[in-house]
């Protein structure tokens, strides 16, 4: 079985993570129920003639994919695999509103054809003239991890070299507010803003200079009880031959709602390990866990993350093994294990 190397990772988020040196120098504090991503100047990445039809999700996806490929020094990947929980929700809203308001008359197709979940992967393929394997996962908070599972399967089996993998979701203008309304009716609602972003990476079986990290393992699980999560995690580590003492940092997806209990079970187990959280600063959305993937890669690469991300930190430490765990409303659990190569 081949090793799944991470050749590059970039992220557009509500923090300035898509900066020139791809690190966050300073945390921006946010308030309010929703926060947009720090959008780059898209003209630098995408020709104007193509930009005109693109929604934020497509723009973020295309720009992030370009940079990820450039950093990995690849012109055309073998495969393109994306994850998007809500797909192109902005164009979905546009088409739906026009449909209702015009009573099904005078409808133009642009918003409709751009509204599908696979628009981002399709546009990337179109731009790169990439005719290889192309697919899109749309399964809530494991959309990105589902894409990782698929890519890792291909890399490890030697079926593919150089796969572009990304997770992307846009804020839209209306549905996000409805989600907020429902959330506020919960006993213990999500305490972080809703947001958007795009994280793209290149995975490859090729060992070369400048490798960021190794994607050692990724698994998703639909349901498990809070009290079983520790067993699930131990089983995951055991299956992948990693001892819990080897883990240098754990990045958790706490969002302040009642289901944070899952994370608390894990925190109790590791009294000496570094713990990081991120949703307070980059928000909650279906593919926000891809940002944790970016953070994990930063740690392993030896880059410095702002101290605000650390809920517990030991003194000057190097990170060889990083575990990511996320869930949403007690469902869609994912474990990702990153190691130094």
């Amino acid at each position: 079985m081949k090793t799944c190397y991470i050749h590059s990772v970039v992220s557009i988020s509500a923090q300035n993570s898509f900066s020139e040196n791809d690190t966050i120098s300073e945390i921006q504090e946010h308030s309010g129920s929703k926060i947009p991503a720090v959008h780059p100047t898209y003209r630098d990445f995408i020709p104007l003639s193509q930009l005109r039809r693109m929604s934020p999700a497509v723009k973020m996806g295309v720009a992030a994919s370009k940079k990820a490929l450039e950093k990995a020094n690849i012109n055309k990947p073998y495969a393109i695999i994306t994850g998007s929980g809500l797909g192109c929700i902005a164009d979905t809203e546009t088409f739906l509103n026009t449909l209702i308001e015009n009573e099904e008359q005078f409808l133009t197709p642009t918003a409709f054809i751009q509204s599908t979940h696979n628009t981002v992967a399709g546009q990337i393929a179109l731009g790169l003239k990439c005719k290889g394997y192309n697919t899109t996962y749309a399964h809530g908070s494991v959309s990105f991890e589902s894409a990782l599972v698929d890519a890792q399967l291909q890399v490890e089996a030697g079926e593919a070299n150089n796969i572009l993998v990304g997770g992307v979701d846009e804020l839209g203008t209306e549905f996000v507010d409805y989600v907020h309304i429902v959330e506020q009716k919960q006993k213990q609602p999500i305490q972080v803003p809703l947001s958007e972003g795009a994280t793209f990476c290149v995975l490859s079986s090729e060992r070369k200079e400048g490798i960021v990290a190794v994607l050692k393992a990724v698994e998703i699980q639909s349901k498990t009880a809070p009290e079983n999560i520790v067993t699930e995690m131990h089983d995951f580590l055991k299956r992948n031959k990693v001892d819990s003492s080897e883990i240098d940092a754990i990045i958790l997806g706490n969002n302040g709602d009642a289901f944070d209990a899952y994370y608390q079970h894990i925190e109790k187990l590791f009294p000496k390990t570094d713990f990081l959280q991120y949703k307070k600063y980059v928000g909650e959305f279906f593919t926000t866990s891809a940002f944790a993937f970016w953070m994990g890669a930063q740690l392993i690469e030896g880059k410095t993350l702002p101290k605000q991300f650390f809920s517990r930190k030991a003194e000057s430490k190097s990170y060889k093994t990083v575990l990511l765990y996320n869930q949403f409303k007690g469902s869609q659990h994912s474990f990702v294990l990153l190691t130094r190569c």
Binding site: G85, T135, Y137, H139, G140, S146, F175, E219, Q221
Partner: peptide, 27 residues
């Protein structure tokens, strides 16, 4: 909450009792 693509998948999985690897493809 039942709008997003993954919702129908989760409901069907729960209905037939599958709790392990569950995902949705939208191409």
């Amino acid at each position: 909450p039942s709008h997003h693509a993954g919702d129908s998948t989760e409901k069907i999985a729960t209905f037939i009792g599958i709790t392990d690897y569950v995902t949705t493809i939208s191409t």
